[in-house]
Design a binder for these strands. Sequence first.
DNA 1: ATGGTTGCTTAGCAA
Length: 287
Amino acid sequence: MTTPTTPSAPAQAEPTAPPSSSSPSEFVVATWNVNSLRARMDRVQPWLSRHRPDVVCLQELKMQTADFPLLELQALGYHAVAFGQKTYNGVAILSRSEHGAPTDIACGMDDGDSDAEARLISARIPGLGLRVASVYVPNGQSIDSDKYAYKLRWLRRFREHLKRHFSPTEPLLLGGDYNIAPDDNDVYDPAGWRDTVICHEDARKALADIVAFGLFDSLRHVEPSAKIYTYWDYRQLAFPKNLGLRIDHLFCTAPLRDRCLAARVDREARKGEKPSDHAPLLVTFRR
DNA sequence: ATGGTTGCTTAGCAA
């Protein structure tokens, strides 16, 4: 074991700001589509160390459950539960070890449908007294595609799943990539995007039906009208031009809406080498 | 913009 003797630290060895510390009065929940956890682990690890969110919903793991990096996350101080599959989809929930191991872990929708795509996982976080789901809604490709019919069907099944397993009066968080921009204000070019799977009225209605279960858009609770995006295409310099969409959401039930203190998108995570095409959304709640 | 970028898998699909 040698002691470093270099007088100046390496350029990127230290974070530029101290990591967030756990507060006894607040907790932070994030949702992030990482677009392959294997390809993104070198970014996810320092991001967790820096922000120390209490709970993180991840989407698009693109790996089998058996390949999920449980031990690496454990070493960073996180419990994790994952529902993966080869090549596509995959969702996970991380929670800081101090909140206790997640219980009541449920993968998929248990509604008898033969659909096996890994798009939903939920669990209870005992130390925070809440239930959390990580959700990856099908993209749907184009409105005349079979995939769009699957998207709309999946959203209806999800609504029924919520009614069966959750209550609008319990503390519940649903974080995920919904692949839907709820409002024209969530899109950089609403006219150009109107007849796409992201903005089509049937998709927006299906999401509204889910919200009608008793959910609130935590970001809009705090920022009612600001132009805030969570996704920028890799092509066409979309990020530097801020040609973005707000398709990642953290929905909460009424008991948590009243405790929602702040919400922001971490655009820093979209910059630099090999980012995901999505940036994380971080929401702070009173404990 | 009927294009372009990334990841998984290895030519073509999905996003």
